[in-house]
């Protein structure tokens, strides 16, 4: 198998797993899943203008997370409703913007076999940055997640930390879309952490195990995808699903 594919998959797996800790702690599992679909119109526009799809996906996601964040603070509409509206509008725009159905399918299910050297370097640099920044702010992210009030009373810049978290979330989803597609990327942020959560005795062990399962899921996915000739995105998520069921057995 291509070295670039393995590198990109592993870095996406690790960065999604480590940021996923806070997605699960903030009870945003469904939001992150739904949010990944928001990337579709951005990807379509990237293809139209001949730009790497990461940039279109990232721009669309960034626009969506800040739109959601802004509306949540300024309006009385519930968070779930806002996310639902953004999600369905984005999906509809995606369908309209994609000129070629095969490109839409690639957007939905991933197309890692088409990655370029630029994609590999972009993933190494941005994925590394996501891992570093998440670890750097780990304690603060955890603190804000557990109690915004307490964190703020101890002088933490809660709004800034929320902002950084949302940028990281947009970044990790945009990076992972080539690997898992918009339909399945959300699962990469949820599955490793959910497996780790089922068998961990502390936050520290949950985080470390989450990274470990992020790696295992990717490797198992790469292996089963090659062995049974099934799409990589589906193979990765199914591997995670099997491990999750095993983790439920006590």
């Amino acid at each position: 198998m291509d070295f670039g594919i393995i590198t990109v998959s592993l870095i996406v797996g690790i960065s999604a797993a480590i940021l996923g800790v806070f997605i699960i702690l903030r009870r945003l599992a469904l939001v992150s899943d739904v949010l990944s679909h928001v990337a579709l119109p951005g990807m379509a526009l990237s293809l139209f203008f001949g730009v790497n799809v990461f940039f279109g996906a990232f721009a669309a996601l960034l626009l969506a997370v800040f739109g959601i964040h802004f509306l949540e603070r300024k309006s009385k509409i519930s968070f779930e409703t806002i996310v639902g509206i953004f999600f369905t509008i984005s999906l509809a725009l995606g369908i309209v913007f994609f000129e070629d159905t095969s490109e839409l399918i690639e957007g939905l299910f991933g197309s890692i076999e088409n990655i370029t050297n630029f994609d590999v370097w972009l993933t190494v640099i941005l994925g590394g940055a996501i891992i570093f920044i998440t670890l750097f702010f780990f304690r603060n992210f955890a603190h804000v997640t557990f109690s915004k009030e307490l964190a703020q009373s101890e002088g933490l810049p809660v709004k800034k930390l929320d902002f950084i978290f949302l940028v990281l979330l947009a970044c990790v989803i945009a990076l992972g879309i080539k690997v898992a597609g918009t339909l399945l990327m959300g699962a990469l942020t949820i599955l490793p952490v959910s497996i780790a959560k089922n068998i961990s005795g502390s936050l520290k062990s949950m985080t470390l195990l989450s990274v470990l399962f992020g790696i295992i899921i990717i490797l198992l996915g790469l292996l089963t995808s090659t062995l049974f000739a099934i799409p990589l995105s589906a193979a990765i998520i199914l591997s995670g699903g099997v491990l999750f069921i095993i983790s439920l057995i006590k």
Partner: peptide
């Protein structure tokens, strides 16, 4: 908070700013 999150008292104290 989500009571199923495996955070220990030690870790909770270590979150102190």
């Amino acid at each position: 908070f989500d009571k199923t999150v495996p955070m220990t008292v030690k870790e909770f104290m270590l979150l102190h700013s």
